[in-house]
Nucleic acid binder design. Structure first.
Length: 329
DNA sequence: AACTGTGCCAACCGCGGGAAT
DNA sequence: AATTCCCGCGGTTGGCACAGT
């Protein structure tokens, strides 16, 4: 097609920079024609994203950045774009290269436990456990999609020390990291790891959980937001028409749904904290408080005899899930 | 000096998914 | 509902630079 391939010349770079600065990059496919570049749109996009855009950070990675990559890779696997989202100015490509050329080898030398017990977590490894009664696939039902950090929540960025290693051999208090569901291929287990902030789990997750709620429990969605009855939500869980070993998973989904809705209905965290809740709500709230990282005093108050928010959250953070009998029909 | 092996990184490729038609 | 378009992601490759023989 007469399109150029291979390394970009400084002249081409300049054309691309000038064009993007003037007109933006609404349509990469159309950009080469409009700018006069003999490149495909994809190549232009890549060049801009990975090299030319002004917020790119140049130079070697700092120790902190490397540690962050290692920790995030442990949690997220080869999800380079998700990792890059935590490292301002660094591109997924760059991080991928650093991982393959430096970090992986370094960890191997150290005999680090990275992925020793579970293989790298790729998108394929995350498949939402769908309840049999939940027929249609919602958009973005892939659990990993919920791991993408919401930009507003990236500030302040968690430091690398906020992310603890997640291995089979090591107890983890994962105080400020994202929620992660990891499928351990060897053990055929799912790990459900907190913490998270609610905004980081998108609506499709909640709507999917909701569809399970409706089909399996006495939950009446019309009760929200006027009434929060966590006992009904959490304990009246009719398991007769569920796959037994999936109960915990969906129970957890229900719990998250409860927290989310409770927060929504009460005008956010502060409102909910001043509302009425029982032990389960207190538990949920404690998690909420921990995750969002504010108003811990209220969380403590409402957690009552179940322990401190920290204790409760820690207990619940590492929950092992059994695999579903079937993941996708 | 010539050849070979290795490391590195920019760029390419194929695929999947969402949006538009 | 089906098809097409487009974007973004992750895996892979090509080629340059450098070290070792």
């Amino acid at each position: 097609m007469g399109l150029k391939k291979g390394p970009w010349s400084p002249e081409e770079d300049q054309i691309l920079i000038s064009f993007v600065q003037k007109y933006g990059h609404g349509n990469w496919r159309a950009l080469p024609k409009q700018s006069g570049l003999l490149r495909c749109g994809k190549s232009c996009r890549l060049r801009w994203i990975n090299y030319l855009r002004p917020d790119i950070k140049r130079g070697n990675f700092t120790i902190e950045e490397e540690e962050t990559i290692i920790n995030l890779h442990e949690m997220l696997g080869n999800r380079w774009s998700a990792i890059a989202a935590r490292l301002p100015g660094r591109t997924d490509n760059e991080i991928k290269n650093v991982w393959h050329t430096h970090l992986k080898k370094r960890l191997n030398k150290k005999g680090h436990v990275t992925n020793k017990n579970h293989k790298s977590v790729t998108k394929k490894d995350f498949s939402v456990k769908r309840h049999p009664t939940c027929s249609s696939r919602t958009s973005s039902s892939n659990v990993t999609d919920q791991l993408e950090p919401t930009p507003s929540l990236l500030s302040p960025q968690p430091s690398s020390s906020d992310f603890s290693s997640v291995t089979e051999t090591e107890e983890t208090t994962n105080n400020n990291s994202d929620i992660v569901i990891i499928k351990d291929e060897k053990k055929e287990e799912y790990k459900f790891l907190g913490n998270t902030s609610f905004a980081e789990i998108d609506e499709s997750f909640w709507s999917e959980a909701l569809s399970v709620e409706i089909s399996n429990t006495t939950y009446n969605p019309s009760k929200f937001p006027s009434s929060i009855n966590s006992a009904e939500l959490v304990y009246d869980y009719d398991t007769s028409n569920t796959i037994g070993h999936d109960v915990d998973f969906w129970g957890r989904a229900r719990r998250w749904l409860f927290v989310k809705r409770a927060l929504d209905s009460q005008g956010g965290l502060a409102g909910f904290a001043s509302g009425r809740h029982d032990c389960e709500a207190g538990f949920a709230l404690s998690l909420a408080m921990e995750f969002v990282g504010r108003d811990e005093a209220r969380a403590k108050q409402h957690c009552g005899r179940r322990g401190t928010p920290q204790e409760i959250a820690t207990k619940q953070i590492r929950c092992y899930e059994t695999p579903p009998q079937q993941e996708e029909e």
